[in-house]
Structures are given as structure tokens and as C-alpha cells.
Design a protein around this nucleic acid. Sequence first.
DNA 1: ACTCTGACAATGGTTGAAAATTAGACCCGT
DNA 2: ACGGGTCTAATTTTCAACCATTGTCAGAGT
Lengths: 252, 252
Amino acid sequence: MSQDTSKDHSANERGAATLADQVLSAIQTAIIKGELAPGSKINEQALAERFGISRGPTREALQTLERQRLVVRMPHVGARVAQLSVEELNDLYDLRSTLEAMACRLAAERITDAQLAELQALLERQEAALKQGDTYFQEQGDVDFHYQIIRASGNKHLQETLMGGLYHLLRMYRYQCSNHQRPSRAIAEHRRIVEAISDRDGELAALLMQRHIEQGRRNTEARLKELKAEASAREHSSATFANTQQLKGETA
Amino acid sequence: MSQDTSKDHSANERGAATLADQVLSAIQTAIIKGELAPGSKINEQALAERFGISRGPTREALQTLERQRLVVRMPHVGARVAQLSVEELNDLYDLRSTLEAMACRLAAERITDAQLAELQALLERQEAALKQGDTYFQEQGDVDFHYQIIRASGNKHLQETLMGGLYHLLRMYRYQCSNHQRPSRAIAEHRRIVEAISDRDGELAALLMQRHIEQGRRNTEARLKELKAEASAREHSSATFANTQQLKGETA
DNA sequence: ACTCTGACAATGGTTGAAAATTAGACCCGT
DNA sequence: ACGGGTCTAATTTTCAACCATTGTCAGAGT
């Protein structure tokens, strides 16, 4: 039922067997929430000390973060938190759209009755949360919705690509560009998608999912452009320090 | 000191920036070619000694291999070379088919004249190699063909997912299940795809690519099933030796 | 203003040992 | 013999100290 699916898909399902895994999810949330400012440099030593571990596991976590595109690394230079960009956002959503459409197509063929029931139960919980204005559960529920469909596709590589690769970066964009608009519409779209899957109409489900995601892309893109404009405006006022400010926390 | 102007200043070029990268590609080819037997356990220490490096970079390479699905790792247990399975093969090709179809769609929109000329030149080299029976270049050319289209898509995340993630595992399946059949037909399919892209007909190109890849899937699947059957037969006759090829001493 | 030089800082890499965990062998009672 | 629990051994994980290599930056020199 309400198992904690959001906890950690990318790392191993085993809670946190290694130190690197533990610190990994900590850094992940820090980056996604913007506590580590985009573009800011990451010092291995300092990061290790901050979590009370040595450089070994820290480097491991950093490498995982690199493959998740949450940080960018260059040899002998170091790691810095990824920068949000409109181009990458579009690349990301294009890919996500294609992959989740595929997931819908497969899920319509292969979803089990139990999984379908679970999906419908989730939908009802989402609607209840909408009425109560529980924004946290709305976010959580949206993630779970997409996750369950992806899981129902039964394609392990598809799951891993979405969950381990794109998922976290996507969360960063959504979190930092959150504009939480019209959850009622999103849930209505969810409902139609579930109906299509329930009817075993994979093509329709895929199409609806693509449109649903495209809607999300538009929202996020618009908000990101606003943020970029604001940042650019701030940069004009203090142009002398422009370059050095980039790697410090200026996101108010 | 030799001032090499062509020094790689970007992390994209996986030339040989760090030790981990160097040894990584070495292990990759060893796994892909089957020199490290599928399912065999990998001893970190032994692997490090074999390449004359310490355990640090070795662990890093191993982690990268894990994300490429060339090895499977479990905490405190160790790493072992991935096992080929028909289910995974199908998952893999499904995903590849979807992604490369997407690449075709995008490439038809965004390919430059220079890239298109390059693609056509490659095609002619492939046909020349076919006539001369140059099987090595046929293999290489096929990889390049798909790579160039993926690159022409212009979607960085798509490129990274295919090249960094699926590519190597795919090569393993193709190498170990090589049955080199009908290259003439494959090249004819390549030509039609290039024509469709040249006509800016993304939908057609995507469809042709999907069929092309499906053809490859069928071949590889059939060959893999043969191999599995043989292996199963061998296991019946001499069950004692089956599992014991490890990296302990040397694989001579 | 530009380039070159050298010190400085951070990362990449090595080594050896200690802590943690699993797999497999061993023992024992029923 | 058999199931169950314990113990040992082997590997992995982590730590800590160290050196080597590279990028960065300031300052001198032109």
C-alpha cells in the first residue's frame, strides 16, 4: 500500500548497506532542494568532513551523482552542482516523454490486476489529498503514479533508466521550478491514463501520457525562464562580481 | 614538455584522463569478448593487480561497469560479470528500439548538411566493405551508423543513455551471440533510413529504424537461445566444473 | 595589457591496516 | 542423519596518511 517508494530508487533497495549510499541520498536531497546551489563547487574534503566520513565513500557518492547528472565533474578540477538550463530541460522532458509513453504501452499489455487495483487506489488517495489541500502528498502521489506505471511495464532496463538516471534530475527541475499549478487537471489526466491502461489500450495511454508530460514540461520551462530572467537581472546590478558569485549561494 | 594542442579538455572524450577510465575500457572489452566469463566472480584485489593499479581506481571502474550493467554488484559480497538472458535481451532491444526511433525522429528535424554528408559517406564505405568482405569494418561501420544518427538527434541525454548506458551491454550480446548474417540486407535498411532522414521524414525513419532493430533482435535472440541450449546440455554432462571458472589464478 | 613563472590548493592515486559483513564450514542436540 | 545455531575465514568497506599531478591564481616581467 503506502510503502515508501520515494526513498531511494537509484541506490540499492537494501536500506543503506554502505556509507556511500547513505551519504548519497543526503547529498541528493541537498542538491535537489537547492541547499547546494547550482553551479557551486563541491569540495571533496569538506563534504567528507561534513558527513563525518572519509574521502573514499565520498568520491563514490560523487561518482554516482555524476552519472545522475546532479553534479558535473572534470578530472583534476573537481565537482560542481549541475546548472539548470532550458535546453537540458527540453532534452530531459523529450526523453522522459518517450520513455514513459513506452512504459504506458507495455503496462497496458502486462499490468496485473493487483497492480491495476493499486494504481486506482493511489488515484483515489490523490483525489482525497487534492480536496484536503495536502500538497506534500500531491507531490508524493504524482511520483508514485508514474513510478507504478513504469514498474508495471515490466522492463527492467526501462525502469533503471528512468528511476536511476532521469528521475533525480527531473526532481531537481521540478522542485526548484515548482509552480504547483492546477493539480486538479493533472489528476484528471492521471485518471484518463489509468482508464486507458485498464482498457488495455496502450496507444491511447501512451498518447495521453505524452500530453500529460508535455503539460508538465511547459509549466516547468516557463517557470525556469522566469527564474533565469530574475537571475540575469540580478547579475546586471552587480556585474563586477558576476563570475565569482556564480559559485556561491545567491538563490534567495 | 610536449605541448599537445589536441589535449582533451572535455570529459566527453573518454581518451585516458584518469586511470579508472583507462582500466575501465580494458575491462569492458574483456567482458564483452567473454574473456571474463559471464557470471564469474570478480575479485577487486586480483583485478587491481592484474592491471597494475590500486583498489581505488578499480572500485571506480567497477562502479561504472555496474551502471552499464556489465557487472552486478552486491554490498559486502562483491561483483560478478553479468549473465546473458533472453528476458534481458528483449528488454534491452525494446528500449533501444524506442530510443533509436526517437533519435531518428529528432535527427530528421535537426541533422545538418555536413552530418548528412558524413552519414552518406559512411554508407558508401559500408557498401564497399561489404563487397570486399571486410567483416571488421562492417561491424565498426554499423556501430558508427547508429552513433551518427544518435548524435545528430542533438539530445544530450538521449546520447548519454544510449552510448553510456545501453551501448556496451548491447555490444556484449552482439559479440557473444554474433551470427553475422545478411549484412547486405542490413546495409540496404541503413540506406532507406538515411533516405528518410534526408527527406526530413522523421516518422518513416523512426519506423524503418524500429524494424531494422527488431531484425537484429530476432537474430540475436535466436542465437542466444542456441547458446543457452548448448550450455544447458553441457551442464548435464559435467555439472561439477560448470560454476568454477573464476578470476582466481589466471584465465589462460 | 599580455604572457610567463612559480607557489598554492585540490584532486587523483597509493598503501597498509582496521572494522564490518557475508559465505561457508563446523559442531551439537534432537 | 538432519536442522539449527555458532564460529571462522575471506572479502569487502572504510579509514588515514602520504605522494604525485594538475589547475588556478597572483604577481613579476616584457
